[in-house]
Design a protein around this nucleic acid. Structure first.
Lengths: 146, 146
DNA sequence: TATAATTAGTTAGCCTAGCTAATGAAATAA
DNA sequence: TTATTTCATTAGCTAGGCTAACTAATTATA
C-alpha cells in the first residue's frame, strides 16, 4: 500500500485545492486593470497567439461562441481588441489585440506574477528548484491531457 | 545569475498558467452535480470544517457577506446546507451541511479527484512523489500568505 | 443552377457569482 | 438609556457562463 500522502488521489486532491486558493489570491491583483479574468485571459491568447477568429478564440478559451461574443464586445468597448472582417470568408470575424490591449495585458501579467513571485521567494533555493520541476511536470501533464 | 527556469518569476508565471488550465479542466466534471463551484467550495468548508457562522464562512471563502448569503441560500434551496439560529447570539446564523450535502460533496469530490488522479497516474513514482512534495510546499505557502 | 445543408457569429433570455450601499436587528459600550 | 458596533440581509449593479433561435454566408448536391 502506497503512502497516503503520495497516492494519485491525495496528490490530485491537494493540487486541486491549491489551484483554487492560488487563483483566488492572484485574481485580486487584476482588479487594478478594471478588466475581468475572462477578458484578460482571452486578451492573453490574442497577444501571445496572434489574431484569430471568434470561434477559434472561443475554442482556445474552452467557452461557447456566444460567451466569446460578449467577451470580445467588452474588449472592444475598452479598445483592447478589435473585430476585423475576414477577406476570404465573410462569415468569419477575426479578432486582434490593439497596441493598448498589448500594453494592458503586459502590465496585468507583471502585477500577477510579481505578486505570486513574492511568495515563491520565501522558499529556499532547493524548494524553489523542486517547485519549478513540479510545475514543468504539471505543465506537460496538462498539455498532454487527452 | 540563476537559471531562468528557476527564478521566482518564472516559477510563478508557469504556476499561474498551470493553475488556470488545471481548473478549467476539472471544473467541467462538476457540472454533473448541478451545483456551481462557489457552492461546492463553501459546502466543502462546511463538511470538512464543521458548522460555522455565515461571516466566518465568507471569510474562509474570501468573499463578502452578501455573496455568502446568496451562496448559502442556494445551498439551502438544494437542501445541501441549513441555517441554524445561534443560541448565544441572535445576530449570528450558523450554517451546517446536511447529510445530503455531505453525500453530494463526497460524490463531487470523488469525480474531480478521480479525473485529475487519472492524469497524475501517468507520472512515474518518482515524479508523483516530487509532485506530492511540491503540492505540500504550495499548500504551506498559501496558508502562510500574508 | 437552384436549392438544401452546414457553418460562423449574434441576439435573447436564463443562471451563478462577485461587488457596494443601505437597512434591520441584536449585542455592547458610554 | 442611548449610542455604537456587529452580523446578516436586501437591492441593484456587473461579469461571465449556458442553450435556443436567428441571420448571413459558404459549400454540397440534385
Amino acid at each position: 500500500m502506497a503512502k497516503p500522502s503520495r497516492t494519485a488521489e491525495h496528490v490530485a486532491d491537494r493540487l486541486h485545492s491549491a489551484a483554487i486558493h492560488l487563483l483566488r489570491r492572484v485574481r485580486k491583483q487584476d482588479t487594478a486593470t478594471r478588466e475581468g479574468p475572462a477578458r484578460l485571459s482571452a486578451l492573453s491568447v490574442l497577444v501571445f497567439g496572434g489574431p484569430m477568429t471568434l470561434g477559434g478564440l472561443a475554442a482556445a478559451e474552452q467557452v461557447k461562441p456566444p460567451t466569446m461574443t460578449r467577451i470580445v464586445t467588452g474588449l472592444e468597448r475598452s479598445a483592447l481588441a478589435e473585430r476585423v472582417p475576414d477577406p476570404a470568408d465573410a462569415r468569419r470575424v477575426r479578432i486582434r489585440a490593439t497596441p493598448k490591449g498589448v500594453r494592458l495585458l503586459q502590465g496585468a501579467r507583471k502585477l500577477r506574477v510579481r505578486y505570486l513571485a513574492a511568495q515563491v521567494k520565501r522558499l529556499t533555493a532547493e524548494e524553489k528548484a523542486s517547485l519549478g520541476q513540479a510545475v514543468e511536470m504539471l505543465d506537460r501533464l496538462l498539455r498532454e491531457w487527452k
